[in-house]
């Protein structure tokens, strides 16, 4: 009998590649997998589709360091070999950062991921701007209910640079709303502006699932 492999991998989408939509990204990854001669499993039926599943789409224009995908392969393949061979077929601005063989059954990425973290870099003029912005977001903004946590970190070298680390909910429940990145960004830019601060950079940093009350990355649980 043929041995199967399931692999979960994490890839980035930075620089110009952040401008690709989800469908465009999926098409390119699938073609790279074909070029890498990875023997993907296909679904049964009239129009067989390769069994590759992706995490929730990241908005067009938002760079990401943590996109995830699961792939079913018809043969035994080491995750490290998978990573090396597919990366020969990808550009570094969109390439596989890490891959692991899935040994035990895991829920699908779409269903499992509950949080995403984002990093925002702002340049401030006045000393307390960072705190003020931070406070406004969690106390008065309409986004408060969709934010799991928000941290403020001052740059060690340049005190005018503040990093905000935000973890937002990707799933709706009784206690929280879904974090809507694009809406938030608009508000955040406006808010920063009002506080003499400029948003210099932002990106999606990580995705998380919940295990025993703890946040784990999708690769930590396989």
């Amino acid at each position: 009998m043929m041995e199967d492999t399931k692999i979960r991998f994490k890839f980035n989408k930075i620089r110009e590649f952040k401008y690709l939509s989800h469908l465009e990204t999926v098409r390119l990854i699938k073609m790279a997998i074909t070029r890498a001669k990875i023997n993907v499993k296909f679904s049964e039926g009239f129009r067989p589709n390769p069994k590759i599943n992706f995490s929730f789409p990241v908005p067009v224009g938002l760079a990401s360091l943590a996109e995830y995908s699961d792939i079913d392969i018809c043969e035994k393949l080491d995750a490290e070999d998978f990573k090396n061979s597919i990366n020969l077929q990808l550009k570094e601005q969109m390439s596989v950062l890490e891959a692991k063989n899935i040994v035990n059954k895991v829920p699908s990425l779409m269903g499992d991921i509950e949080f995403c973290s984002y990093s925002f870099k702002i340049k401030i003029e006045k000393k307390n701007s960072g705190e003020k912005i931070n406070n406004d977001i969690i106390t008065t903004s309409e986004f408060a209910g969709s934010i799991y946590s928000l941290d403020l970190i001052y740059d060690e070298i340049d005190s005018n640079i503040v990093n905000l680390n935000l973890i937002g909910y990707t799933k709706f429940s009784e206690n929280n709303k879904i974090f809507k990145f694009n809406d938030f960004l608009k508000y955040f830019k406006y808010l920063s502006n009002n506080n003499d601060a400029v948003v210099e950079d932002y990106f999606k940093k990580e995705a998380y699932v919940l295990r025993g009350g703890m946040l784990k990355t999708p690769l930590e649980i396989v």
Binding site: E16, F17, Y19, L20, S21, E24, L28, M31, A32, R35, V60, G61, Q89, L90, K91, Q93
Partner: peptide
Amino acid sequence: LKPGRYIGNEF
């Protein structure tokens, strides 16, 4: 609308 049209750096 479709910024992917202009990014280049294709395989």
